[in-house]
Simulated scan of single mutants.
Amino acid sequence: MRDLAKGFGFLLQGQRWVGRHGRWLGFGLLPGLVTLVLYAGALVGLAFGADDLTAWATPFADDWSSPWQGLFRGFLTALVFALGLFLAVITFTAVTLLVGQPFYESLSEEVDRSEGGHVAESGLSLGRELWISARDSLRIVARVACYGVLLFALGFVPVIGQTVVPVLGFCVSGYFLTEELTAVAFQRRRIELKERLALLRGRRMMVIGFGVPLTLAYLVPFVAVFLMPGAVAGATLMARELAPDTHRPDQEPAPSAQPGAYGLHKD
C-alpha cells in the first residue's frame, strides 16, 4: 500500500510541477489536441460501426429469437467498444509522445534539472529517437493487444467477466501507460525496453498507483490533453526513483548504455 500511495504521489507531484511552470503546460496542449481529434473520430466511427461488426461476426445468431439475439449481440458490441477504448487509452499516450517528442523530452530534462543532479542526454538525433520510440511503442501495443484479447475472452465468463475483468483491464492499462510515460526519461538514460520493464516489475504497486488513476482520468474527454505534460513530469520523477544511479555523472553506464545499445554498434 505504501508503494501504491507513492505512485499516486508522483502523479500529483508532476501536475504540481507543471502548475508551477505554466509555459510547459501551454506548449504541451497542442500535441495532445491533435491526437485527441484523431482518436475521437476513430472512436465515433467504432461506436457507429460496432453493432454492424458484431452482426457480421455472429451469423449463427441470425435466427435466434428475441430477446436473446439482441442481448447477445448487445453484449458483444459493448465488449468491442470497450476493447477499442482500452487500446485507445494505451496508444493515445504513445502517439501523443511521438507527435510531441521534442517538447516532452525537453520537459523531462527540465524536471531533472530542477530536481538537481546530472541531467542525462541520449546524444541521439531526433530521427533516431523517434524511431526508437515508435519501435518500442509498437512492442508495447503488441503486448497490450495480447492482454486485451485475453481479457476480452474472459469477459464472457459469468460474474468474473463483469467484475474482476474490468479491474484487471484498468490495471493492465495503467501499467503500460506508465511504461510509455517513463520511457521519455528512461530513453534519455539509454535504458532499453527490456530493462525498463524489469525496473517497473520490481515496483508494480507504485506503477499501478501512478497509472490506474491516470487511466481513469483519461476516460473523461479532454482530460488526457491537460494532464499529459504533468504526467510526463511525474513519470520523470518516478524514473529517478526507479533508476537513481543514472543521475550520477561518476557512475559507470548501465550495460544497456554501452556501445551497441539502441543499435549503435561499433564496427
Rank of each mutant, 00 (worst) to 15 (best):
R2V: 12
D3H: 13
A5D: 13
A5G: 10
F8D: 08
L11S: 04
L12G: 03
Q13T: 01
Q13D: 13
R16V: 09
R16T: 07
W17N: 02
W17S: 00
W17L: 01
G19R: 09
G26Y: 09
G28M: 02
L30T: 07
P31S: 01
V34I: 15
T35M: 14
L36E: 15
G41S: 13
A42I: 15
F48D: 14
D51F: 13
L53K: 06
A55C: 00
A57F: 14
A61W: 06
A61Q: 10
F72E: 00
G74E: 09
G74S: 08
T77A: 13
L79W: 11
V80E: 06
A82Q: 11
L83R: 06
G84S: 06
L85M: 13
L87R: 03
A88W: 08
V89N: 15
I90T: 12
F92I: 02
A94R: 02
V95H: 00
T96S: 12
L97Q: 06
L98G: 02
V99P: 03
P102W: 01
F103E: 01
Y104Q: 02
Y104P: 04
E105Q: 14
S106V: 02
L107D: 02
R113I: 08
S114D: 15
V119C: 04
A120T: 11
A120D: 06
E121V: 12
G123F: 01
S125T: 14
S125C: 00
L126V: 00
G127Q: 04
L138C: 05
R139I: 03
A142K: 07
R143M: 08
V144A: 08
V144H: 03
A145P: 01
A145V: 07
C146K: 07
Y147L: 01
L151C: 04
A153H: 08
F156I: 11
V157K: 10
P158R: 07
P158Q: 07
V159Q: 07
V159Y: 10
V165T: 11
V165L: 06
P166R: 00
F170H: 04
G174M: 04
Y175F: 15
F176V: 03
F176N: 01
F176S: 02
L177Y: 00
T178F: 04
E179S: 07
A185I: 05
R188N: 09
R196C: 05
R196N: 07
A198S: 14
A198L: 14
L200S: 07
R204L: 15
I208A: 07
G209A: 12
L214K: 09
L214G: 10
T215W: 06
T215G: 15
V220H: 14
V220N: 14
V220K: 14
P221A: 11
V223W: 11
A224W: 03
F226M: 14
L227S: 13
M228E: 14
A233H: 10
G234I: 08
L237W: 05
M238S: 10
A239V: 05
A243C: 13
A243E: 15
P244H: 07
P249K: 01
P253T: 03
P255Y: 03
S256F: 00
S256V: 01
S256G: 03
Q258F: 08
P259L: 02
Y262S: 05
